[in-house]
Structures are given as C-alpha cells and as structure tokens.
C-alpha cells in the first residue's frame, strides 16, 4: 500500500471573472496508493466533484500538480494528455446523461477502443461482449439497444463497462450511486468492489453519502468549502473524527436503525459563500471551538495519529480504541452541544 498511484499537490481551481472569483478548490493535496479506495466526502459546494474533474483536467486547475504513475498530468497537453489520461477513467452521477441516447450500448462501450484503434472486428466484438457480461448486461439481448432504452442502474453498468475498456489504473467515481434506488445502489457498489479486485483498480470514490463512502473506502478525506479538513483510515476517522466539522457531519448522518441514539448536536446555519470564504480556517464561522487564531491562521494538515491528518488548530482527541460515539469529547472538555 505504500506505492502511490496518484499524487495531488496544492490543487487549486478558481472560477469566474475577476471580482466574482469563486475559489472552488483551494490547495488540496493527497495521495492515493495503488489498489486502495479513497473516499472523498463533503456537502454540496465543498469542491469534491470539482476536485475529481480537475484531476482529469476536464476543468483546468488554476495551479497545483497532479501526478499519475510518476507522470505529471498538469504539464501535458494535446494528444499526450489524452493518451495519459486513459489510465484514469471517470463515472458520473447522472446515469442517463452519461450515455449518448442515440448510440447503442455496444458502440458506447467500444468507443474508447475505437478512439485509440485498439481493437477491430472480431476482437473488438469479443472485448465488448466480455465487458458487458462482466457488468451484468447480456450482450446478446441488450448489446444493440439504444442507451435511452435502459434504466438508471443499467446505464450505470454500461458506463462502468465503458470506463474499463481502456484497462485504467484509476477509476474516479463521482456520486455514481446517488441517483439510484437503494436496491440498485447496493448492486452497483458490489459490482465496483468485484471489478476492483478483478482489474486491480484504484478508486477515488466521491460522494455525499457518508454510509456509502464508509462501506466502500479504505481511507476517507473530508472536504469543506474547497479545502481538505481531515483524511485518515475510514474506520478510525468515522469512529473518532478529529475535525469538528467531520464530527458534525457524522452526527447528522441518518442510520437506518430505530434504536440508534438520537444525536442532538446539530450543525446550525449553512456554509458561507465560496465567493467570499472566511479567512483562516474556513469552518471557523460555524465551529463552536473557533478562536482568534482560527481567523488569522490557516491550519495546515498535521498528523494526529498514524495516517490520520487533520487541518485544525484544536483537533478533537482521537481515541485510539474506537468506542461508542457518545464518549467522544472536545478539546476543552465541552461538547459542541453546549455551544449550539
């Protein structure tokens, strides 16, 4: 797990004209090791999707570097970029708009092969049939259907088959199950796990659903208003979040269990506008522990436990043995519930 497939350093994306600059992603750095799944969570507008798209250079990063297998993607352009980028593939949220409604399933999956002239004739047919079979679409019965004739779940399967056609190393999944029914969502998540093992894939799994991310990820990164708050192993991060925002976020997650304790620590208010983000720590305006220092000084990601880093001046105590959620305490001994 030590070898890094993807390294992101100080990735920054700003949109819009001067005066109305939106800082969508601000100095995000992380690594993804070969074979792992990194979950990227956050609420809408936190920049998680923009991060995914900037990695692919679908949106142009303003600054920062993206290195895939030691090759700098940010410096490449034209055909070099297009070629290198095939080692990275992306699956999108909206299954319907991910597929061209006027093309047949078979042709959609074959598109990357056709682009790079990797296979023709019988071989192309065999590869496409194999891919469709693997994602659970019968190539004989459904291969010649048009994309618009498939359900959401089936469309997402075809998208996955298309992404796998170039045998990518890294698969970026951007909210791939959030438009699907629960039962179909589970099918797609299981399929991703199976294909990950079979193809030796590395996954960057972007989602807003904390439960989904927990189930699929080895490590989880949390974003708030364009910045990374916390990154660490999924189990310890969920059991003992060190950033106050992560703790609120987890507290708000709904568990499908009537016996689950009702948490009363609710994060009040709404995120500030990315047009005019707060100085220092961007969460400070809603954080019950914020001090003067948080406004003046931007906290850097610092390690609080092995592999667990947090960007907070006053990180919550990380309990080494994951205990029940209710025993966690804040740095000053007072829980956020007192402050809200």
């Amino acid at each position: 797990m030590s070898e890094n497939l993807l390294s992101v350093r100080d990735l920054t994306v700003t949109f819009g004209p001067r005066g109305r600059r939106v800082s969508a992603v601000d100095g995000v750095s992380f690594d993804v090791a070969v074979g792992e799944t990194l979950g990227l969570v956050g609420e809408s507008g936190c920049g998680k999707s923009t991060t995914g798209r900037a990695l692919m250079r679908v949106v142009e990063p303003t600054s920062g570097t993206v290195t895939l297998e030691g090759l700098d993607l940010t410096a490449a352009s034209g055909r070099t970029l297009r070629e290198r980028r095939t080692a990275m593939q992306m699956i999108f949220q909206d299954p319907i708009s991910s597929l061209n409604p006027r093309r047949r399933a078979r042709d959609i999956v074959a598109e990357p092969l056709d682009c790079w002239k990797r296979a023709t004739g019988e071989e192309r047919r065999r590869i496409v049939d194999d891919l469709l079979t693997q994602v659970g679409i019968d190539p004989v019965a459904y291969g010649d259907r048009y994309a618009r004739q498939f359900s959401g779940g089936q469309c997402q399967r075809i998208s996955i088959a298309r992404a796998l056609a170039m045998r990518p190393k890294l698969l970026i999944c951007d909210e791939v199950v959030s438009a699907l029914d629960v039962s179909v969502q589970a099918q797609i998540l299981n399929l991703l796990e199976d294909l990950k093992a079979e193809y030796g894939l590395t996954l960057l799994f972007i989602a807003h659903d904390l439960a989904v991310v927990k189930n699929i990820s080895d490590r989880v990164a949390v974003m708030y208003l364009g910045r990374l708050c916390e990154i660490g192993p999924a189990d310890t991060l969920y059991a003992a979040p060190a950033h106050p925002y992560t703790r609120f976020l987890l507290g708000a997650a709904l568990e499908a269990d009537p016996e689950a304790p009702r948490r009363h620590e609710i994060l009040e208010g709404e995120p500030p506008s990315p047009l005019d983000p707060p100085s220092g720590c961007r969460f400070r305006t809603r954080c019950p522990f914020a001090t003067e220092r948080c406004a003046n000084e931007t906290p850097a990601l610092t390690e609080v436990a092995p592999g667990h880093r947090v960007a907070c001046h006053y990180p919550l105590r990380v309990t080494v043995t994951p205990g029940p959620a209710t025993t966690r305490t804040g740095p000053t001994g007072s829980g956020p519930s007192d402050a809200t």
């Binding site: 297009r82 980028r85 095939t86 999108f92 682009c115």
Partner: peptide, 26 residues
C-alpha cells in the same frame, strides 16, 4: 454540457470525433 461528452473527452476522443460522433447525431 451532458456527461457523455465529458466521458468521451476523458476516454481520449479528439475534438473532431466528439463533434461528429457525440454532438452531431443529437
């Protein structure tokens, strides 16, 4: 602006190919 056009880009399709294969039929 639909995702399938982005998908075509990330698969490495050239601009001409996207214009002819993805956009024109629609």
């Amino acid at each position: 602006t639909q995702d399938f056009v982005v998908a075509a880009r990330v698969q490495g399709a050239s601009d001409t190919r996207i214009l002819v294969r993805e956009l024109l039929p629609n």
